[in-house]
Computed example of a mutant assay.
Amino acid sequence: MSRTRVRTPLRTTVLAGTAVLTAALTACSGGGGGSSTGGDGKAKPETRITVNLSGKQARPGSPVEVTLAEGRLAQVTVTDSKGATLDGKVSADGRTWTSTRNAAPGTGYTVEARDAGGGTAKADFATAAPEKVNKLSLAPGKNSTVGIAQPLSIVFDHPVKDKAAVEKALKVTTSNNTEGSWGWMQDWSGKDRVDWRPKEYWEPGTKVTLDARLNGVDSGPDGGWFVRDYATGFTVGRNQVVKVDLDGHRLKLVRDGQLVRDVPMSAGTPGGEKASWRGRTVLMSKEGTINMRSETVGLGDAYDKMVDYSMRLTWSGMYAHAAPWNARYMGNANRSSGCIGMTDDNARWVYDQVQVGDPFEIEGADAKGTQALNNGYGEWNLSWSEWQAKSALR
């Protein structure tokens, strides 16, 4: 049952789990009994205010509703235990105020209402603590500068069954009103993931922000509640595309539509698992010198090497990197274990030029197929309509 405090005597009852605050709302304190006196000397009747949530174990996940039995609400403020307030709107008839955000789990709230005559009332309630909490990871990193193909990507710790509720809480804002859409998939790790991709590659200089207003959203069975909001943002860098011709054994860097450099390369050996993937992929990370071992990608004990200028393209282990041991094949044959290999000098130059989020457009028959949607950032291999269909709100 809600605890109430008003400036004139009040009566509190509980009806069907809803806190009912009965108070004489007046512009000044004083008066006894069930009424007060207005400026005309006449008695002012008691006014009832109801709050849909009450007690110390109220169920979270729904908006807070404050209803006035008679008259019009002028203002309602709902403040949580950390001092943050819930935004809301008063209905057209002035009777009901509804918050635009849900009440979050494990949170105390104070409700303060004022009517058109200046009278006030106050109530407190708290929501039950969550049995399970869902969290997430975001890419790209906050305040980063990325290439024109970089999507926003969110991977969740626990399953998201109510995808529509989660997607509604994710707001993307761009500096130039870029058209885009969310799309759901299972990440390579097996976790639920949602990405936001623009219809076409980003315009250079675009500023992108994500406001994930998830506090108080239930992700569904086995997923748990979100208990905080998230935010990130990035800027789109220069316009450049890496074009890879598997059949011609060439890699070209194109910037602002102009060819900057054309280098020979050798990609994966065709005809089996060592072949490269084709399609439009995205540079995921620049990892420098790393140890590559064939058994980690299901190729037995074929190699175990320290590899320089490594640029990750897929989760399954496809990179562009330096491969001086394969120099005799560069420009004339594909003889690697799936990666795009270049000389040390060429790999160093490409590594220095590319930015995370740059598209690698890989074409040719010497491939084992098209990169999968979740194997890195494979969304650019879907048409716009196919990508839009992966939104939970379509």
Results as ranks from 00 to 15, higher is better:
Lys368Ile: 02
Trp384Gly: 02
Trp384Val: 03
Asn374Met: 13
Lys368Asp: 05
Leu382His: 02
Gln355Glu: 15
Ser385Cys: 10
Glu361Val: 11
Phe360Thr: 03
Ala367Ile: 00
Glu361Thr: 07
Gln355Arg: 14
Leu373Gly: 01
Gly364Asn: 06
Ala367Arg: 03
Asn374Gly: 06
Tyr351Pro: 02
Trp380Pro: 00
Ala372Ile: 06
Asn374Glu: 11
Tyr351Gly: 07
Ser383Pro: 02
Gln353Asn: 08
Phe360Ala: 05
Trp380Gln: 00
Glu379Met: 13
Val350Pro: 01
Ser385Gln: 13
Pro359Gly: 12
Phe360Tyr: 15
Trp380Val: 00
Asp358Glu: 10
Pro359Thr: 10
Asp352Glu: 13
Asn374Trp: 15
Gly369Gln: 08
Glu361Arg: 10
Asn375His: 08
Asp352Tyr: 15
Val354Ala: 14
Asp366Phe: 09
Trp384Pro: 01
Glu361Ser: 09
Ala365Glu: 12
Leu382Pro: 00
Asp358Thr: 07
Val354Asp: 10
Ile362Arg: 05
Ile362Thr: 00
Gly369Trp: 09
Gly364Arg: 05
Ala367Phe: 01
Lys368Asn: 05
Asn375Ser: 14
Ala365Arg: 14
Gly376Ser: 10
Asn375Pro: 02
Glu379Ser: 14
Ala367Cys: 04
Val350Tyr: 07
Asn375Ala: 12
Gln355Leu: 12
Val354Gln: 10
Trp384Gln: 03
Glu363Asn: 12
Asp352Arg: 12
Gln353Glu: 11
Glu386Trp: 07
Tyr377Cys: 13
Val356Cys: 08
Gly357Trp: 15
Gln371Val: 12
Asn381Tyr: 04
Trp380Gly: 00
Gln371Thr: 11
Glu379Phe: 12
Gly357Cys: 08
Gly357Tyr: 11
Glu361Gln: 15
Val356Gly: 03
Val350His: 05
Gly369Thr: 05
Gly364Met: 07
Glu363Trp: 13
Thr370Phe: 08
Gly376Met: 03
Asp366Cys: 08
Glu379Pro: 01
Asp352Lys: 15
Ala367Asp: 04
